[in-house]
Design a protein around this nucleic acid. Structure first.
Lengths: 215, 215
DNA sequence: CCTTATATTTAACGGTCGTTCAATTTAATT
DNA sequence: AATTAAATTGAACGACCGTTAAATATAAGG
């Protein structure tokens, strides 16, 4: 269901225009999937948003499910690289604090999301969808689990007496809480009436660090 | 969009059969909305599941959006009552610990969800949808915010030096993490390879209590 | 420049969608 | 038992869905 039945080898390099079109399609799909969910976004709307005929979306993206896979996978590698790089930077200068390790995981995404890049903001919402819906189990395993395992192992190594399952559980708690900053800012704002803007990411790190240190 | 343009007064009491049919429709809608999301579940599938004609779903539920509202609102009052009762029970016997207060919020839902009641398990997933999607902002405000405000105020009173926004933010973090137990058990299991079953709710309370106490 | 693989368009297929409306059946009220 | 409001059915509406096939335009490779 993911790959074509026959993987004919490419005989010609794709043109610049073709690559640009494919990027435009993936960008539109990313935005609309993030805004309306997988079922709420239609291929036709994505095509219109990308100023392209519907059949071309199928040509570049395959089936709707394959298109979703491609959209999620596209930025996953970059995100994973940023997180691993941040972790290695923290590990490079002596023994980092637990908070530094957690920040290495959380900060790269929010740097992108809050950096004014609308595409990354949409991508953050996509991660939330993938993490919450068992329908995307394989996608989550392929795109996000490898990095998660590295961090869980690192954290576990810093808290030797903690049970591995407990570390994994709390890691999922932290990920879920961090994604709530993306999906539920409106709820936070509603529940804390008024209030100057204030750094939810720093607060999450305080919250999660204390939660892990209690192990 | 929510109520009929003319609310004619009822001239006759609904029959037992009619009430049973309406319940069956709401049950089917609850199950299918929870399993496939708002856009993924169709009125036709809901009607078939309830062994009823499609037009009858509209008769009892109104538009699809109104039906979703009714499904979510149906159990919201009972859940709110259970939570407030648990909080009052904790407050009644002296000064409760922060953990007891958090448990008063978290435990009632999981008692229902893990108590073998499939309908409540579905309802738990619905809460996760409502909490994560700004589309249901009004619904969340009507059904869940009043209870949340009570708990936030109570927690804030126990941590006088904490900024109100910080308490609200951490409360949302905790809610999001608790819902991840419902929506993402599969991820926890994947990330903590193998492993005997183990009490995620207790672990969440440990995690969240430490997170709040760090304020 | 020619050939032709690839990109793109155009048009349509078979389904499913939410919703509506006019019968028809059920049962609460008098 | 008669009246008729309310529940339920059956059928259809127009719109949109994902996908596909064939025709045409573009441009890479020789």
């Amino acid at each position: 269901m993911m790959t074509q039945t026959t993987d004919r080898p490419r005989l010609r390099a794709p043109s610049k225009r073709s690559l640009a079109t494919k990027t435009r399609i993936l960008d539109s799909a990313e935005r609309l999937f993030a805004a309306r969910g997988f079922d709420g976004a239609s291929i036709r709307d994505i095509a219109k948003d990308a100023r392209v005929q519907g059949a071309l979306v199928a040509h570049h993206g395959g089936s709707k499910e394959e298109l979703f896979y491609k959209v999620v996978a596209r930025r996953a590698e970059e995100l994973a690289a940023l997180r691993i790089a941040a972790l290695n930077a923290a590990l490079a200068q002596g023994t980092p604090s637990l908070r530094d390790v957690l920040r290495s995981f959380v900060q790269p995404l929010f740097d992108k999301v809050q950096g004014g890049d609308a595409a990354w903001a949409a991508y953050g919402r996509l991660i939330a969808f993938v993490s919450a819906d068992e329908r995307w189990r394989d996608l989550a395993r392929d795109c996000f689990d490898p990095t998660a395992r590295v961090f869980i192992a690192t954290i576990g190594g810093m808290i030797p007496k903690a049970r591995p399952e407990a570390v994994a559980a709390r890691f999922v708690f932290m990920v879920s809480a961090s994604l709530s900053i993306i999906t539920s800012t409106w709820r936070v704002q509603t529940l804390s009436q008024e209030g100057a803007t204030y750094d939810l990411v720093e607060d999450l790190l305080n919250f999660a660090t204390a939660g892990f240190e209690a192990l």
